[in-house]
Design a protein around this nucleic acid. Structure first.
Lengths: 224, 224
DNA sequence: CGGTTGTATGACGGTTCGATGACAAAAACC
DNA sequence: GGTTTTTGTCATCGAACCGTCATACAACCG
């Protein structure tokens, strides 16, 4: 069953949302603060997160950023404010959709379904990809070089997966920032740094990369 | 550049949207009916489609279904009606988002970016164009001569892609300056220099070019 | 055949771009 | 609570690249 986490401080609204979602066939549970929600999501990840912007303690925007950094869970903002500024800021922070309270549950449900179509579903075992002696198994969350496991960090792993998914194609720094970090704006040098660190680990000769290559002025690509 | 197709019957709104999108850095073009839009999308697919629901002739909902059947292009509905029924129906038909007119361009742009993060780009063989033994792949950011990769710079690559896109047709220096460099005015000799450098790399005998040929007084063209 | 216009090309200085090491903040771990 | 790992920012260095210019060459025209 599809699980939805509702982060909303107003008890009445939160419970109403939970009930309505259960009515629609979701498994719903709620938390009153961003901190609680983040903890819950780390311990028992839901498939979707609904989050209010006006929360006590941690900011709603920061909460979104955090959610998108930890795992890649789809986030829908439920806010009382119908303001372009807020909408843009929330989407930039990494939200996938923004609906204004009071929300029609049928619409919310339809938006969640629309979102599901676009979200990467790990259906069945994803076969490991090979690039020469480099092996990337997305589901095992593991990288191997000539059979030997290579310890990579989460960010490095996501970056590598993104590149592997588009093997042979150039990805601009902007695209990578957007898809790996969820940043729509930001310093593109950040990508360089992580590519560099990744090369130290996966390339036999990091100064002359064979797989993770730079295309000056264009971006990076992973090739076989 | 990201291309957006706007399907909207009201000329004023359509043109306003196009202009606003171009302002935001998209390449925008428009069609007044669903039929025109579908044909356009089949011939020259855009990366996103914005579609109005109230269209003469074919229904907006059917248009969405058709678009999603043909290719998997992301669709955003732009509608005057803020009605739960319509929203649900449009999303069920396959739309990815639904915004109500009048729309803030900043919001629309942010929603498109949010959508982009989620869109899976089809993987598979990287498409390439051939000119004799010359191979140009825009997506791989790569040029090959008889299978061997040729190192070209960004400017050279853009120039070559521009010529390849209009294969067999002459492009004047002015056109190239405008499309490759974005200069509306400038020294046309600049094009000569880069064409020269490109020939050194991709032509077996740069002095007697076979593919990248000069048309005296007119410009350059790339032929097979 | 000279004059003229248009094109090819080599050289050079300034600039941009990417790689990398250092560092501080944040997070994760114990 | 303290320690280690990870992350993002910054500054710097060197290489690659770009655009301009000068000159040489080729094509066209009367």
């Amino acid at each position: 069953m599809t699980a939805v986490l509702v982060i909303e401080d107003d008890d009445r609204i939160r419970l109403a949302l939970q009930l309505a979602l259960e009515e629609e066939g979701y498994e719903a549970y709620g938390e009153p603060t961003a901190e609680d929600g983040l903890r819950r999501q780390r311990e028992k990840p839901a498939d979707y997160v609904l989050v209010d912007l006006m929360l006590p303690g941690m900011n709603g925007f920061d909460c979104i950023r955090q959610l998108r950094r930890d795992d890649d869970v789809p986030v829908v903002v439920i806010s009382a404010r119908d303001d372009t500024h807020d909408i843009v800021a929330a989407l930039e922070a990494g939200a996938d959709d923004y609906v204004v309270k009071p929300v029609a549950i049928k619409e919310l449900s339809a938006r969640l379904r629309a979102l599901r179509r676009r979200v990467r579903t790990v259906s069945g075992p994803v076969p490991a990809q090979f690039f020469g002696d480099l092996e990337i198994s997305a589901e095992a969350g593991e990288v191997r070089r000539s059979g030997q496991p290579v310890p990579v960090t989460r960010t490095e792993f996501r970056l590598l997966c993104e590149l592997a998914e588009h093997a042979g194609r150039v990805l601009s720094r902007q695209q990578l920032l957007s898809r790996v970090w969820g940043y729509e704006t930001g310093d593109e040098r950040l990508v360089d740094v992580h590519v560099g660190r990744l090369r130290q680990k996966i390339e036999p000769d990091p100064a002359n990369p064979r797989h993770l290559v730079t295309l000056r002025g264009l971006g990076y690509k992973l090739q076989r």
